[in-house]
Design a binder for these strands. Structure first.
Lengths: 239, 239
DNA sequence: CGGTTAGTTGAGTGCATTCAATCCCAGTGG
DNA sequence: CCACTGGGATTGAATGCACTCAACTAACCG
């Protein structure tokens, strides 16, 4: 149940106010005039924890730039098996993958999240009219593709403990790139989310975390992880 | 060991002569004048079976449009475990994923293959100057991202038999989209390649093929598969 | 306080793996 | 011509890792 807060320019801060680090994506290219043009098509939303931004198969209305919280893009099979394709952190854009105008995946708020949503056609038009933005979008897509390849290697080749170690290392890098604290590292997603991301069962994820703790590679409490031995973690991660 | 055959316009057919079906990618947009501009930067190569078009970590010189044969993009871990990220069929472009100007993955010719290679900078410049081509590249990247998500679901969630069934169904669709014969379906890659693509061992892949044959879902001989029960195959595939 | 959700841990099972043997076929050389 | 060889595929037997099912704890909330 999305709650529209209002259009930019008329209400609230500009969409990039909440974007941090070098993950500004398109916005950092834009001088005020083009920013205004883009933001007129943008609309802020707040999403409750565990609510869906979009569902696979539903018509694509908007693309979403995450400004706070975490969004998971996933695919669920007929019998309930779920694969999380990617986690989107503040600064990331999601919801643009479609087939015949319908979303290819589910988009779910893992935490309460805020987004700036852009009408798809108008956003596409804006991109088409701005070469630098178009190039940035291609770079962004290529980055995502690289990340998907790395993810695939993790799920296809690593053992359960290696996958979880890789996940911790990957999240650390993603947070660091956004200048978010990593000591300790907040992991707000549930074990079952991590499991669905890594192609494991939640019990296996839990056991892997315990094993890393027993080997003094990480420390665990609540939803946070403290890395005690980065070298060993990296080694296990195969990164 | 690549063997340059010559530049387009001066030697041999245009690069798209060998592209079939609707997978023309960028080229189908171009009228003769822009084609000539693009092809002046292109160069045909022939690749021996099991030779590398590019290696992970090596500087990116060119992007490759496959015009015949199959190219596999893969990542190999320090201990030899290998994950194939994608197979590239005629019409596909590969070799553009990079980190700091270096290839992110290996590119290996699974069969003897032919490519049209474009200098990366010049190709990038051409894309930048042509809005329609740029948009096509974005569409292409988004498609690849969608396929990577589907691949991830297969490797992360399906059983060995389901994965192999999915692989057969996926290859059938890919061939059909290029108007290549699918009855029987040629599968020129080795069992170990399929295994590395699906995150399995080659013996497991072989067992899965045998099981599909025993259940009269497919027939097997040599490097070809004949689908006997498409409905059951699709059901197993979870597509 | 009871009910719910999330996480951890234990016991036993099963599926994919490992290791090994065999088969088939293409290529090669005596 | 046939023997030999090597690569690829298949199949069998045994192992092990992740899974299933279950019990238990802790935190949170009505």
């Amino acid at each position: 149940m999305p709650s529209s807060i209002g259009h930019f320019g008329t209400n609230g801060p500009l969409p990039c106010d909440r974007c941090i680090g070098k993950q500004y994506n398109v916005c950092h290219l834009l001088e005020p005039e083009r920013q205004r043009e883009l933001f007129e098509t943008g609309c802020r939303h707040r999403w409750d924890k565990r609510s869906y931004l979009f569902r696979a198969g539903s018509p694509v209305g908007a693309v979403f730039k995450v400004t706070s919280g975490i969004v998971a893009e996933s695919r669920t099979l007929a019998d309930g098996r779920r694969q999380i394709i990617a986690f989107f952190l503040p600064g990331d854009i999601c919801g643009y993958l479609e087939t015949d105008g319908r979303h290819a995946f589910d988009g779910e708020a893992i935490t309460t999240a805020e987004t700036c949503s852009f009408n798809r056609e108008r956003f596409g038009g804006f991109v088409n009219r701005n070469n630098d933005v178009a190039e940035e979008m291609r770079r962004n897509l290529a980055d995502r593709l690289k990340m998907a390849g790395a993810h695939l290697s993790v799920v296809g080749q690593l053992t359960s403990t290696e996958r979880v170690a890789n996940f911790v290392a990957m999240m650390t890098a993603a947070y660091a790139a956004r200048n978010v604290q990593t000591r300790p590292l907040p992991l707000p997603m549930k074990r079952s989310d991590i499991a669905d991301y890594l192609g494991l069962r939640l019990e296996t994820v839990s056991r892997a975390f315990s094993k890393l703790r027993q080997h003094n590679i990480i420390d665990l409490n609540e939803d946070e992880v403290l890395i005690l031995d980065q070298a060993k973690l990296n080694q296990l991660s195969n990164r």
